[in-house]
């Protein structure tokens, strides 16, 4: 009977952990997406200095994002995000046209990361 009670307790704990991990991922992703949008907007205005300021914010936020979401998200996808972010700086400095495309790819990755964790039919199967 004690084993049963312990099992029920652990299962409840696991469910709570799953829910909280989703909530954390959602909140962190939203914060990160907001910075990505800000970077995109600033880049469109053409000010490299302002874009670099937002980029620094994006880079420091990525560390926090990586540390927390790395607990429950596969490391490969987070590494891909890191790769994109590190390639953005030289692109911004060179004012390359495909910077927007890379920012869009980063946005897509962050969105997917959360959506893939949602317990939806196609994700489960």
């Amino acid at each position: 009977m004690n084993h049963c009670k312990a099992s029920v307790g652990i299962l409840i704990g696991l469910i709570l952990l799953c829910i909280s991990s989703l909530m954390i991922l959602k909140s962190k992703s939203e914060t990160y997406l907001a910075i990505i949008d800000q970077l995109e907007t600033t880049f469109q205005t053409g000010s490299i200095e302002d874009t670099l300021v937002v980029y620094d914010k994006l880079e420091s936020e990525l560390e926090k994002y990586h540390n927390i979401t790395g607990l429950f998200v596969n490391g490969t996808e987070l590494d891909e995000m890191r790769e994109i972010v590190s390639s953005l700086k030289p692109m911004i400095l060179a004012n390359q046209k495909n910077t927007s495309a890379e920012i869009a790819r980063l946005r897509m990755l962050v969105q997917n990361l959360y959506e893939e964790e949602l317990p939806e039919f196609w994700n489960i199967l």
């Binding site: 084993h3 049963c4 312990a6 099992s7 029920v8 652990i10 299962l11 696991l14 952990l17 799953c18 790395g70 607990l71 429950f72 998200v73 596969n74 490391g75 490969t76 590494d79």
Partner: peptide, 25 residues
């Protein structure tokens, strides 16, 4: 595979054992 978060290993192990205990109960 250290790319897989440790929680991805611990969680299913605990869940399976809990299911097993409940099924036997």
């Amino acid at each position: 595979d250290i790319e897989i978060p440790l929680l991805h290993g611990i969680m299913p192990i605990l869940a399976l054992v809990c299911f097993e205990v409940l099924v036997s109960w």
